[in-house]
Every structure is written in C-alpha cells, then in structure tokens.
Amino acid sequence: MTDDRIYLAALERALKQRGLDEFRTAEVIREMADHVAESGDRPLEAFGEPEQYAAALLGADQPEGEADRRYEARTSRATAADEMEILAELGRDGWELTGVRDFGLHARRPRGSQPPEAWRYARRSGIRRVPLLAEMQAEGWTPCGRWLTFHYFKRPDADTPQPHIR
C-alpha cells in the first residue's frame, strides 16, 4: 500500500467514525483523489492529518469531553436568508448563542428544571468592527459571532414572558 492509499484509508475511517454515511464518504475520498492527482500534492501535506481534516470537513465542534456539563448544547443549520428567524425562536426557548460558524448556529441552554432565561438577537453588517461593537455594547448587546461582514449580538431579554419549553 502506498502512503497515499494509507492516508485515504485512514481518512475513510475517520469520516465514518464521525457518522458520515458510506455514500458521502466515498464522495469525499473521490474528490480528494481527484485533487491529489491533478495537483501532484501529497495528501498529508495538502490536507493535514486525516482526523483533523475529517473534523474540519464535517464542521465538528469541540470534543464532547470538554463540553460544559451545566449546559445542553445544540447546533442549528441556517442560511443568510433565515438565520434571524431561527435565532428569534432559539432565543425565545432560552437558547444562548455561543458562536456562529458559517451559518451553523451554536447555542447552549442551562440544564435543570428552571425555565431558562430568554435571549434576543441582533445582526449588524459592516466592515468596521470596532465602532460597531462599541455602539452595540453601549446598548447592552454582547457580540456572539460573525460571518463575513455580518456580526451577531445577544442580550438577555428580561422583559420577555417565561419561555414555553417544548
């Protein structure tokens, strides 16, 4: 087996371990083989360690073991067209946005029987981050993620009635 084949086999294993189905795994391998054949790159140099590449490709979050046990976590998929709607619903249900990565909305909510605090979200668009942050922070908003020139902010909404837990 050549080094490249060993690499591809390791990547295949890593992708499957992360729950990617057979079909999609084969596509990833085929696309990488295509790239390597045309560029002349070695997979390890061009794509890094198989484990890390699999994690990057599947947008993996931090390892489970490092998650804060006081909170439950969820990731919602969104697009530039619907993310504010999704955030409004998450906020009503007590989900606090902890990060935005390419429209994966990462949120957490305290565990326990207490109804969680509701959150409000805002999005601003701009290149000049510093004045924008200052302006929003003056109004009590905390930055909680960015993507391209979109900046997302959160604020606990104490005025919102107790959220309805589904």
Binding site: V28, D41, F47, Y53, L57, L58, T79, R101, D102
Partner: peptide, 23 residues
Amino acid sequence: VKGGTLYPLLARLQAAGLVDARW
C-alpha cells in the same frame, strides 16, 4: 490555498446555501 482549507470551506458554503455541487 491548500486542500485542507479549501474543501471544508466549500462544504460550509454549500451548507449555507451559497454554493451548489454536482458530479
């Protein structure tokens, strides 16, 4: 741009609905 940067980025753009892919 290395493959290790490019393809995860393409996957994210695809997930965000900005890019479509076909074989």
